[in-house]
Design a protein around this nucleic acid. Sequence first.
RNA 1: GGCCUUAUCGUCUAACGGUUUAGGACGCAGCCCUCUCAAGGCUGAAAUACGGGUUCGAUCCCCGUUAAGGCUACCA
Length: 480
Amino acid sequence: MSTIRVRFAPSPTGFLHVGGLRTALYNFLFARKHAGVFILRIEDTDRSRYVPGAVDNLIRTLAWAGLVYDEGPGKGGDRGPYVQSERLTLYAEYAAQLVKEGKAYYDFDDQEDAEEAEKNVDGAPVQRAITRHAHLLTPEEIARRLAAGESAAVRMHVPAATTIAFDDDIRGHVEFASDLINDQVILKSDGYPTYHLANVVDDHLMGVTHVIRGEEWLPSTPKHVLLYEYFGWQRPSFAHLPLLLNPDRTKLSKRQGDVAVEDYQRKGYLPEALVNFIALLGWNPGDEREIFSLEELIREFSVERVGKSGAVFNIDKLNSVNKHYLRERADRDLAALVRPLLEEQGIGGISDAYLEQVIRLTKERVTTLRDVATVGDFFFADPAVFDGDAVKKNWKADSPRCVTGAADALETMTKFTAAAIEQTIRSAAEQLGVGAGKLIHPLRLALTGKATGPGLFELMEVLGKETCVRRLRHALDTRV
RNA sequence: GGCCUUAUCGUCUAACGGUUUAGGACGCAGCCCUCUCAAGGCUGAAAUACGGGUUCGAUCCCCGUUAAGGCUACCA
């Protein structure tokens, strides 16, 4: 048995898409599960879509998610280079080989001409002509034009009237009529290969045994199958993953929310949450467990349990998974992650100890790390405004009297702990002849500006006696 | 338009012909807990797209319809 080798082969056109992350994840899990090799390969064969910095970004994001690759850019490996733009001569050689063997041919048609010929009429979809003109030019003519320095693309020759079939590990047997398949360009006139050639050549040369990729590649797989045949190479097995969808069930895209992994990172989602959530979009363990660490996913994952239908990227579910992991993480850990987020919003100069206390009281009440700044805003500054509804609900006629009494009592305290505060407040309420709620609710409002939040006594301890008393007096001044 | 793929609660999904009054999770509603919120606990509403077969028996197998998506580039 040879080692299982899989690859994640994104094109560096910007940021890592969450769909791409899932593809990478499944490849990674499959490789780890079978003690195989996980390769990262950069498919940068479209010069017009080149985005500087995209590769670094991709690598950084993969690392953030914990998907460590074994071979690839910056990592090495003996089947490199792992960046397609550095393998140009290779593709040219293989394309030339196919031409020589009559399995591909030169096409001198101008790109613009071709595009013009395929334009739709009246905006109505028009059957794109199947390009097939292998016999248009004589060998002499081709040789002459090539010698004259004319640029040409290379098209693969697709046989007529046959069926191209393969067995997909997820979808089963799939067949395509060759008559419907274009004589695909495999080498562009600028010398770059198209995806089809590069992908087949590289997968073979890199020893890829299993191709696990998105369903959008299913229709072009017969071209790849054909190329494997032409080269006389054993083809890998294919597994086409169902697509990730927008809420309206179209292919997940921008404009309908965030699609870049970085967006979620920036918003304060934990990598383990995103990974766990995304793993469940198209795969399930077969029982009712839903929380999985990366290690557990490696143990449980199998292609057999990957579904066939597209999955809507449901942000509510992600939120709930994120909340789960937020509660699991240590306060200290979270504090380190939250600090830069706070600083982004101009909140700085906070001690580690204080921030950890804030985290302790807010982490059960936030969805993302970013929410700490809003849910716990009063920990960082006196409330600027008092929530209107909260005032209506919790600031009653006798509230000034109650808050005054509480403030007076608090002022005398020496040990300002949650337990002591609670005792003080409750006995103050007793002395005022009212229920504790008559103090607690207005107090919370005066201290935080809102009607919801962490436990009052705990929050007060963190705020400290001076801040509490100051805010209470101030609230009395402005509200009465 | 053509080709390919897909089709269980709103969403993610389980049930790989009978153990099913179709299970779980998120979301939603209610209740409990409680200083509020969150968490937690309990309860509830909520699905096999439609029509034919095959079979003693279909969510599950086959065919068709419908719907959705993907692909149809010298983009990946």
